[in-house]
């Protein structure tokens, strides 16, 4: 095991009396994909801004590449690529110019740069759009360009704040593919998301956050094993729910569905078959863990 890329110890951030990140601990191993999962306002973006030295912490310790962030923020940012929550591509430039100008902020220029830009545009499947203005790109293309831009300085660590929010399934799958390739090539990834599928597919390890606190951590599989029963039967509609008796299950109500978590689904399944109730039987997933830990009521 090499040293972790990022280590936080009781990291805290408050705005006035509002504690937004509350004594959070994490250690992000090199070459892995590390996820921050949490509902709106959980403190995910703030955690990333702390890591980039874009906001002063209120307490605790935070190190990246073995250096305290506060004292070495610019030096640390040189080695990180950033995909912000909302795209901030430069609308005054074309696709290729966006990369070239961004490279200049890292003082990168010269022979290799043009080749690197072509390579990155190929990597995110924008090779044929290099002269397009950014406002003519679809949301998915803009996101891919932002990812290419984050890679211009050949970062050891790439930080992605909700990389696929608002994209259609095709666009999302393209991005997942690219991120998996990046990780396979040894780049460390940190990503925030509300998408369980995204976290389950990409993350080696993740923390579930809410109200600035870490509620649970581990690999997707261990989180599922530790926090919920392995199988769930979701019964849909009031009539169906009324007709059954969830034997030896932990049940939760959400909207017009009843979720029955269990280690032994056979008795309930048999009962349901007899009543012609509407139901789905599936293995438990991260979403079940997430909902159990963060509660089912609406946020904001």
């Amino acid at each position: 095991m090499t040293d972790p890329v990022v280590v936080a110890h009781r990291l805290s951030k408050s705005y006035g009396a509002h504690v937004v990140v509350d004594a959070v601990d994490f250690a992000i191993p090199r070459g892995k994909c590390y996820g921050f999962l949490g509902p709106n306002g959980a403190g995910k973006t703030t955690t990333l801004r702390l890591l980039l030295g874009l906001t002063p912490k209120s307490g605790g310790e935070l190190e990246a590449f073995g250096l305290p962030v506060a004292a070495h923020a610019a030096q640390i940012r040189r080695r990180i690529g950033v995909v912000p929550q909302s795209d901030n591509l430069d609308p005054d430039f074309t696709v290729a110019e966006n990369l070239r100008v961004y490279a200049s902020y890292f003082a990168l220029r010269g022979e290799g740069l043009d080749a690197r830009i072509d390579e990155l545009l190929e990597f995110v499947a924008l090779g044929d759009r290099s002269d397009a203005r950014t406002h003519t790109l679809s949301g998915g293309m803009q996101r891919r360009l932002t990812i290419a831009r984050a890679l211009i300085n050949e970062p050891e660590l790439v930080v992605l704040d909700e990389p696929t929010t608002g994209l259609d399934p095709q666009a999302r799958h393209v991005i997942w593919g690219r991120l998996a390739e990046l990780r396979a090539s040894g780049t460390t990834l940190i990503l925030t998301t509300h998408y369980m599928e995204e976290a389950e597919r990409l993350c080696d390890e993740l923390v579930i956050m809410d109200n600035g606190r870490v509620l649970a951590r581990g690999s997707p599989a261990t989180l599922i094993a530790d926090h919920v029963e392995p199988e769930v039967i979701e019964i849909r509609g009031e009539n169906s729910i009324a007709r059954c008796d969830p034997l030896n299950c932990r049940t939760e109500r959400m909207g017009s569905s009843l979720y029955c978590y269990t280690r032994d689904p056979a008795p309930l399944l048999a009962a349901l078959h007899d009543t012609h109730a509407q139901f789905i039987h599936r293995p438990s997933g991260l979403e079940d863990v997430f909902l159990k830990l963060t509660g089912r009521e609406l946020r904001d």
Partner: peptide, 11 residues
């Protein structure tokens, strides 16, 4: 335009 936000993510 959030150009400064983008620039501040660099050194």
């Amino acid at each position: 335009q959030k150009t400064y936000e983008a620039i501040l993510a660099t050194p």
